[in-house]
């Protein structure tokens, strides 16, 4: 890997954030809403990427962390009448706690067994949501009404149903997570994670506690995905069991593979691209799953490194 000055790297990422900020004033209403959704979901993809891209652990159960945040925040507002900031923190805490428990169990396995175990825990989580339908709304879901989605700060109030507030809140979350992951993967800890991906035995032999490092990565990944879920519930006002289904475990995998695993901006590019592809094609066909399927197969066959992975390999060796 060629080395680049940190200034160049931070400039690139802050530039991307600035671009997204500027887009708010340029985009038409419909696309402004779509972008807010994409940024919230890109956070989900970034959380997934932390584990899949950097540690090399392929989980098929991340929908449970996303929906832990979704339900943790959504139910706190809906059933307990909490305010928005407390609910968001509750959502992230739920996700982190769940990730800690799942990590302690699932990290005893590796490879194919890890995928199946995570998928099964996610399935249990999904069925639990259906089982406690009286509380969670089951597959009908719950709608969080506008009055409970207003943040009161001092005298002023922020209405999360207002498009600009929504866009800026999504952007704020996206920027914070982007910078956190950037700092994380460039730190010593991030280098250890990559070392585990490349050769776990050797990393262990060099004196690193690989299990503890992997556990921290699982919890961080779970917390980031939960933050995305909590934001999604509060910004768009709907929580439902479909967000916990297997499909939502597979979507972040698709987004990350498309954008480029183990790249910082890859998840955003993957989410953006897939969202627009399904949005455009859904105009003339309802067969959007077909596109997802074909995309997955073509990606693993021809672009296993994704968009930014290929860019990094060809031109920009310094891309984090």
């Amino acid at each position: 890997m060629k080395d680049a000055s940190p200034a160049k790297i931070y400039a690139l990422h802050i530039g991307v954030i600035a671009l997204l900020f500027a887009l708010n004033f340029v985009l038409p209403d419909y696309h402004q809403g779509l972008f807010a959704r994409i940024m919230a979901l890109a956070v989900f993809a970034m959380g997934y990427n932390l584990l899949f891209g950097y540690v090399g652990l392929l989980s098929l159960g991340h929908a449970m962390f996303f929906s832990a945040g979704l339900y943790g925040a959504g139910l706190a507002v809906y059933q307990l009448g909490w305010g928005v900031p407390e609910a968001f923190v509750a959502g992230v805490a739920c996700g982190a706690l769940l990730a800690l428990v799942i990590g302690l169990l699932a990290l005893r396995t590796s490879g194919v067994a890890f995928m199946i175990v995570t998928m099964m825990f996610a399935q249990v989580f999904y069925l639990l949501i259906l089982y406690f339908a009286a509380w969670t709304g089951g597959d009908q879901g719950l709608v969080i009404q506008q009055p409970s989605r207003i943040i009161a700060i001092g005298g002023a109030s922020l209405d999360l149903t207002n498009p600009t507030v929504r866009y800026m809140s999504a952007l704020a979350l996206f920027s914070v997570v982007l910078l956190i992951t950037l700092v994380l993967v460039r730190s010593r800890f991030g280098r250890v994670l990559v070392a585990i991906r490349e050769n776990e035995e050797r990393t262990k032999m060099l004196g690193y506690d690989t299990v503890a490092n992997k556990l921290v990565a699982v919890v961080a990944s779970g917390a980031i995905c939960a933050a995305s879920g909590a934001a999604y519930a509060l910004l768009f006002g709907y929580i439902g069991s479909s967000f916990a289904s297997v499909q939502y475990s597979i979507l972040p995998l698709l987004w990350v593979l498309l954008g480029g695993a183990a790249t910082i901006l890859g998840p955003l590019i993957g989410t953006l691209f897939m969202y627009y592809v399904t949005d455009i094609t859904s105009g003339f066909t309802s067969a959007y799953l077909l596109i997802v399927g074909v995309a997955l197969i073509l990606l693993v066959l021809f672009f296993p490194k994704g968009v930014l992975g290929s860019v990094r390999q060809r031109w920009l060796g310094w891309l984090p």
Partner: peptide
């Protein structure tokens, strides 16, 4: 490759399911 085949068979899952629906 184990991970590649999982992703590819997930793709097949979606394709077959969607074609059946159509």
């Amino acid at each position: 490759n184990p991970e590649g085949t999982i992703v590819a068979t997930i793709g097949m899952l979606y394709i077959i399911q969607q074609l059946a629906l159509t």
